[in-house]
């Protein structure tokens, strides 16, 4: 499997990606503030996208790239939802209406 130069480079990228993932996981577990955790979750989603891309090129099937793009979209929506939760302390409209009345 590893016989050409690009494969070797992709393998190194995979290993470095794993190290980055573990660092993000450590930050997610220890993270003193909530913003550290949101940031590390978002960054782990980005690592997922990169991992699928690298794995596709490593196994000679770059068709996985468009799937990786879909993961980027999911990651974006999840981050928006989390940040909305931070801003309003609610996801739906019920609690917001309540706070406005106060």
């Amino acid at each position: 499997m590893i016989n050409t130069m690009p494969h070797f480079i992709f393998l190194i990228a995979l290993i470095l990606l794993f190290i980055a993932m573990i660092l993000v996981l450590i930050r997610l577990y220890k993270g003193p503030t909530l913003y550290d955790r949101v940031l590390s979750t978002n960054s782990f989603g980005t690592h997922t996208v990169l991992f699928i891309g690298v794995l596709g090129f490593l196994s000679d099937r770059p068709d996985f790239l468009d799937i990786a793009l879909l993961y980027a979209l999911i990651n974006f929506v999840a981050t928006i939802a989390i940040l909305k939760f931070f801003r309003y302390r609610a996801i739906g409209d019920v609690l917001i209406k309540r706070e406005l009345k106060k």
Binding site: I67, Y71, I74, I82
Partner: peptide, 24 residues
Amino acid sequence: VDVAFTEAAVGAGISTVLMLGTIA
């Protein structure tokens, strides 16, 4: 790949939002 995509959409997308709503 299809199972993986369902897992990511439901697990990382929808259920995160639902659980945050529950916490609220």
